[in-house]
């Protein structure tokens, strides 16, 4: 089967497409598993008695929790084939002959602390797609912007991530 060549123009038609809203409740157990995985002993994320006496009045999530993939993509289907990675917007179109995918980097901006009991909703849109030529051939950069609000619709954080696809 011969496929029609996918041009950069075609790919760029996806700019502005928004993914589904992802809602996550900030729970003590979730924070605990997260900081345990990072191995961060800071009692502000772990010890209720300690955290109660701080200006926060209780355990908060570390601001870098915003790095977690759960705010970018819904949980991956356990039956999805090996190598499957969730994409922030549905049916995202990739360039042809992709040889590899790398996380190029990210930027995270935090406006409010994430408190236990907060229900936060993130929405991600494709903000830009561009092409560069590198040592390994063609590289496509997919820039995704995620906006995160809490249950009062206050913006709590903003994230920008760059996915690099080698073709």
């Amino acid at each position: 089967m011969t496929e029609k060549e996918v041009t950069l123009e075609d790919l760029r038609k996806q700019i502005g497409i928004e993914g589904p809203a992802i809602t996550v409740e900030i729970e003590k157990g979730m924070i605990g598993r997260f900081v345990h995985a990072v191995d961060d002993p800071n009692p502000l994320w772990r010890d209720e008695e300690y955290a109660k006496k701080t200006k926060y009045g209780g355990i908060i999530a570390p601001p870098y929790l915003i790095c977690a993939a759960m705010f970018l993509t819904p949980p991956t289907d356990p039956k999805a084939p090996a190598g499957y990675m969730g994409s922030p917007v549905p049916n995202m179109q990739f360039p042809q002959n992709v040889k590899g995918v790398l996380d190029g980097g990210g930027e995270w901006e935090m406006f409010k602390p994430l408190k236990v009991g907060d229900v936060i909703t993130s929405r991600t849109k494709l903000a830009n797609i561009y092409e560069r030529r590198g040592k390994m051939g063609k590289m496509y950069f997919y820039v995704a912007e995620t906006n995160i609000v809490n249950q009062r619709n206050e913006q709590v954080a903003k994230a920008t991530g760059t996915l690099i696809l080698y073709a």
Binding site: M30, R33, F34, H36, A37, C67, A68, M70, P75, T76
Partner: peptide, 8 residues
């Protein structure tokens, strides 16, 4: 542990 906690 990170894979589980973060969803990646």
């Amino acid at each position: 542990q990170w894979a589980g906690a973060s969803g990646d």
